[in-house]
C-alpha cells in the first residue's frame, strides 16, 4: 500500500480523502516519520479524483498546511506558555526602569536641595518620594507620580506572574516561589527547556558570566545563579549557600519535569523536597 497525504493507493484502486482540512491535517501528522509515506505526486491526485488540476491540488495543500501550522503554533503556546515568560521579563524590565528613574530623581532633587545628602539617614521608596515631592519642581513631582504608578503596576503584575507560575509550574513554584520559578523558565528559554535541564545547569542559570569565566580561566565556579533570589539561599550562612543551592537546584530539576510532563502539583514530592532543602541549610 502507498500512502500520500491525500489518498491511499492499494494495488490498482485508490481511496481519496475528503476535502476537509482537519482530516487532512490529522493525516499529515500521522504520516510524519512514517517510512511508507510517499513523496506527493499531484498528477496521481488528479488521476484519482482528489483534485481537478494542479491549481486545485496546490490550493488544497495550502489550506491544509495553513490549518496544520496554526494548530502547531497553538500547541507550542499550550505547553510552553510564552505569556508567563513574557510577563516575568516585563516585570524585571519595570524594576530596572523604576530604579533608573528613582536614581535620576534623587540626583535632580539633590541639585535643587544641596543640603539633602545621601549619606544621612535617607528614607527609601515611598517615604523618599513623599519627601522629594514637597519643595521640589513641578516637573519632578510629575515624574515621581509616574514612578508611583509604575510601582503599583509592578505589584499587580508580580501577583499575576506568581499566580500564573503556580498554575503552569506548580511544583517549581511550591519549592522556590512563583517569581523565581518563572524567571528560571524565562532564562532557560521555556518550560520545556527547563524540564530538560540537569540540576547542575539550573543551579547556575542566570550566572552566565561567572560560569564562562570559570570555564575559561581559573576562577571558582559560581555557586548559584537566579536561585540566589530564593530566601533559603541568600538567607543562609555564606558557607552553607552552595549546599542549599545545590540541593534546591536538584529538586527544582525534578519539579520542572513533573510540571512539564504531568502538569499538576505532587504534594508528596513537595513535602520531601522542601524537607531536603531545609536540611541542607541546617548547621550540624
Amino acid at each position: 500500500m502507498k500512502s500520500y497525504w491525500f489518498l491511499d493507493r492499494e494495488g490498482g484502486t485508490c481511496h481519496a480523502l475528503p476535502h476537509d482540512q482537519r482530516i487532512l491535517a490529522d493525516r499529515i501528522k500521522q504520516l510524519e516519520g512514517d517510512k511508507t509515506a510517499e513523496t506527493p505526486d499531484w498528477e496521481y491526485a488528479v488521476k484519482c479524483g482528489f483534485a481537478k488540476n494542479r491549481g486545485e491540488y496546490l490550493d488544497l495543500l495550502h489550506a491544509t498546511a495553513m490549518a496544520l501550522t496554526a494548530e502547531r503554533i497553538d500547541e507550542v503556546s499550550k505547553v510552553d506558555h510564552p505569556e508567563l515568560i513574557l510577563m516575568v521579563k516585563m516585570l524585571d524590565e519595570i524594576d530596572i526602569v523604576i530604579n533608573l528613574l528613582s536614581e535620576r530623581s534623587v540626583e535632580w532633587y539633590r541639585a535643587l536641595n544641596p543640603e539633602f545628602s545621601r549619606k544621612s539617614e535617607m528614607p527609601r521608596g515611598r517615604k523618599l518620594r513623599d519627601l522629594m515631592r514637597d519643595g521640589s519642581d513641578e516637573a519632578l513631582g510629575e515624574i515621581l507620580d509616574e514612578i508611583e504608578q509604575l510601582t503599583k503596576r509592578r505589584s499587580t503584575l508580580s501577583g499575576k506572574v506568581a499566580a500564573k507560575a503556580a498554575e503552569h509550574l506548580p511544583n517549581c513554584s511550591a519549592l522556590a516561589g512563583g517569581l523565581v520559578a518563572a524567571r528560571l523558565a524565562a532564562e532557560a528559554g521555556g518550560i520545556r527547556a527547563l524540564a530538560l535541564m540537569p540540576g547542575s545547569a539550573i543551579q547556575v542559570l542566570g550566572a552566565k558570566n561567572a560560569l564562562f569565566c570559570h570555564l575559561s580561566t581559573a576562577s571558582p565556579s559560581p555557586k548559584h545563579g537566579l536561585i540566589y533570589q530564593y530566601r533559603g539561599v541568600h538567607g543562609s550562612r555564606k558557607e552553607k549557600r552552595g549546599k542549599v543551592a545545590r540541593v534546591l537546584a536538584a529538586k527544582l530539576a525534578i519539579a520542572a519535569r513533573i510540571d512539564y510532563y504531568r502538569g499538576e502539583p505532587d504534594p508528596v514530592f513537595i513535602t520531601i523536597a522542601k524537607e531536603a532543602i531545609l536540611n541542607a541549610g541546617r548547621i550540624q
Binding site: E32, T39, D41, W42
Partner: peptide, 18 residues
Amino acid sequence: IPIMADARKPERYLPLVE
C-alpha cells in the same frame, strides 16, 4: 506552503513536499 518543522528532520515534511 507554510511548514512548521525543523529542517534537520526532513522526514517530518516528506509527505508534503514534492
